[in-house]
Amino acid sequence: MHRVSEVEVQQDLLQANRELAGRNRRLLEEKGVVAVEVSGAIGSGKSTLIELAVKELGLSTAAIAGDVVAALDAARFSKLGIPVVPLNTGRECHLDAHLVAHALEQLPLEQLDMVFIENVGNLVCPADFELGAHTRVVVVSVTEGDDIVAKHPGIFRRAQLAVINKIDLSGFVGADPEKMARDARRLNPGLEVIKLSAKTGENLSRWYRFLRRVAELKPTSSGR
């Protein structure tokens, strides 16, 4: 004889990550640290934009560098003389709040103004996993084709800033940065969009201005 029963569960499997993300955010706020998540496509210039910002802003910064394997980005950030925690996700395609919580334990939060969290190069999976950052930046570049934004609505909808990088190359690759900016604003009317070139320096001042504004906000528990 056997008995069959239905067990009600009704549990959101993403909820555990959201709760951990909330805990990360509260910890950062207690310590007066602003966290900036930088997500985006592979090779779009995430690390370069962080490096430039660390040098320019004159704030006490640190970086958490997510990579599937290796720690190449972390090595780049270490050269700047800032505290760095490399995070290897192994087989996973995104950082999650649990990994970030452990990384935060290794940083001298009392001494910091701003933490950059560089996600794994991927425009899909990171969208589902909040990390606890106060603001999310998505970086793409014209070399990925000017339909890259429209193809990845999820991550743009959940971001506060979209950076469209390498605009100096748009003529060579036949991509229209204006179209990319329009697509991004259509997906998320509240989104700030900056078209820039990290190489030539065009519009980089806007990137710095955005970050200074975020730093001035100082943690007071923002939205999601």
Binding site: R3, V4, S5, E6, V7, V9, Q10, Q11, L13
Partner: peptide, 9 residues
Amino acid sequence: LLERLRVVE
């Protein structure tokens, strides 16, 4: 959402 499980005992 994990809604429910059918269990055989």
